[in-house]
Design a protein around this nucleic acid. Structure first.
Lengths: 111, 111
DNA sequence: ACTGTATATGCCTTGACATGCATATGCACT
DNA sequence: AGTGCATATGCATGTCAAGGCATATACAGT
């Protein structure tokens, strides 16, 4: 799932679709990218559930599907808790408590 | 940046570090992964700013850094707006308005 | 039927990257 | 100085995916 959005062109496509659904040709033109490339990326996105398409004569209208991105959101959640602590000076303090001053001489916590 | 977290082992490492900082050996044991692999992934994560390390004698203690994950969060934000609309029945309605019933015969919106 | 348009798919090449293994570096303790 | 431990790095290898190009499929209008 993260592999999907790791590809810059695919992220670009997804960002395009936020505003409204788009046909392949519209995407192709806005991103200045060869049509087969667009189709292939859309294929990947569709297989992964990021987008869905409806047929309109010869063209396909692609739109976003929320689920996969919500999963990204879900994965991110635990870290959000982390950085909201991390921004203020409190975190320094907590880190000290967690690992009481790194040993200079002896090896601690052998296991 | 998304390439970094596309790798499952790296995501696992990041998840480990949410609770507290860890040494390479601790990560190695918890993830049952060969030590060179851990070091290499940590290298990648460090170069990308996801983690930072402090030296404790022979071991390195790795901890999370918030910035890169906040960027992920930032990228995700526009989509959050999307799916909060999308969950309730209202979205169906809005979609109809956006694309007035796909043409059956004629090709509309040539551009 | 024919032409043009819109989209999809197949093949091939190339590059990036993860992995495994061996080895190097650095530190601590005796 | 020597041994053991913790971590990093180098090299060789295999895999997989993106890009480019040609082509196939499908539909519309004449």
């Amino acid at each position: 799932m993260f592999e999907i959005i790791a590809e810059p062109n695919r992220r670009a496509i997804l960002s395009l679709l936020v505003s409204s659904q788009q046909s392949v040709g519209e995407i192709e033109r806005q991103l200045h990218m060869p049509q087969p490339a667009v189709s292939k990326h859309l294929r990947v996105l569709r297989d992964a559930g990021f987008v869905e398409a409806t047929v309109d004569a010869q063209r396909r209208l692609y739109r976003l599907r929320p689920e996969p991105l919500q999963e990204v959101e879900a994965w991110l959640a635990p870290f959000r808790r982390f950085w909201s602590v991390h921004v203020d000076a409190l975190e320094r303090h907590l880190d000290r408590m967690d690992s009481p001053k790194p040993a200079k001489k002896k090896t601690r916590r052998a296991k």
